[in-house]
């Protein structure tokens, strides 16, 4: 058993500290939004977790392609780690979006492009795990997983565009269309600090979790190989 690299140990601690600071900035430092009240504070983590979900989604697609190119099972472990983290963080983002939507739009769920696309991504990833579960042979499992993540990675942006052809009520907070949709708002300087810090903190958290999860996959594969060797 390899000892945990010290860089990773440091990263674990840094992630925790960043999460703490980010929580402080979001809950205490940032001013209360005038129209929506306290619930707007959910926004910082909502966007940050969705961002992590996106990072995981992209990492999964890329590692899927690399796996198909190289056939190296290492990339399969990277892919499954990315999918798992993306699944967890998109889930948080969707729940936070729902919680925000309830007081602001008076509904738990809206068929908004981003929210719906995130939900469909979840379905794709659940299907991904079901697909993997049904296959015994590790090589085939990795190949099918990579093909399916690739198909998902291409279809999700198209899904997003398709849903966006419907009218959206999701507020665009950054950019020129600001505050056009109901529930939008202009960020003050302090809000920006909390917002960008949350993005940064969650990016580091993503790297940390990703690394840990990949190491776990490596260990799991070693255990599997050893099991085969011992059982003979």
């Amino acid at each position: 058993m390899q000892a945990k690299p010290s860089t990773l140990k440091v990263l674990d601690v840094v992630s925790l500290i960043l999460l703490g600071i980010s929580t402080y900035l979001a809950l205490v430092f940032a001013p209360t939004e005038a129209v929506m009240g306290e619930v707007q504070r959910v926004f910082y983590f909502h966007v940050a977790t969705a961002w992590v979900g996106m990072l995981g989604f992209m990492a999964a697609g890329v590692s899927g392609i690399i796996y198909l190119r190289t056939g190296d099972l290492k990339w399969d472990r990277v892919e499954i780690a990315a999918v798992e983290i993306s699944l967890v963080f998109f889930f948080i983002a969707i729940v936070l979006g729902s919680i925000w939507a309830r007081p602001v739009w008076n509904t738990w769920w809206t068929w908004d492009p981003r929210l719906t696309t995130a939900a469909i991504t979840q379905l794709i990833y659940i299907a991904y795990f079901m697909l993997r579960q049904g296959i015994e042979d590790p090589d085939r499992r990795a190949r099918f997983g990579a093909v399916y993540t690739l198909v998902g990675a291409v279809s999700v942006p198209i899904t997003f565009m398709a849903i966006r052809l419907f009218r959206t009520i999701h507020p665009v907070v950054i950019g020129t269309e600001s505050a056009e949709a109901q529930g939008g708002f202009n960020m003050t300087a302090d809000m920006r600090v909390a917002f960008f810090f949350a993005l940064f903190a969650f990016t580091v958290i993503f790297v940390d979790l990703f690394w840990n999860r990949i190491r776990m996959g490596t260990l799991a594969d070693k255990v599997e190989q050893l099991k085969l060797k011992v059982m003979q």
Partner: peptide, 26 residues
């Protein structure tokens, strides 16, 4: 502003809850 702090608390509780569960599962 309307008192929406309960939603905020719920939101953060769920975020931390899910993250904690994930880290614990790892």
């Amino acid at each position: 502003p309307p008192d929406t702090s309960q939603y905020m608390v719920a939101g953060y509780a769920i975020s931390f809850g899910v993250m904690l569960i994930y880290v614990a599962s790892l």
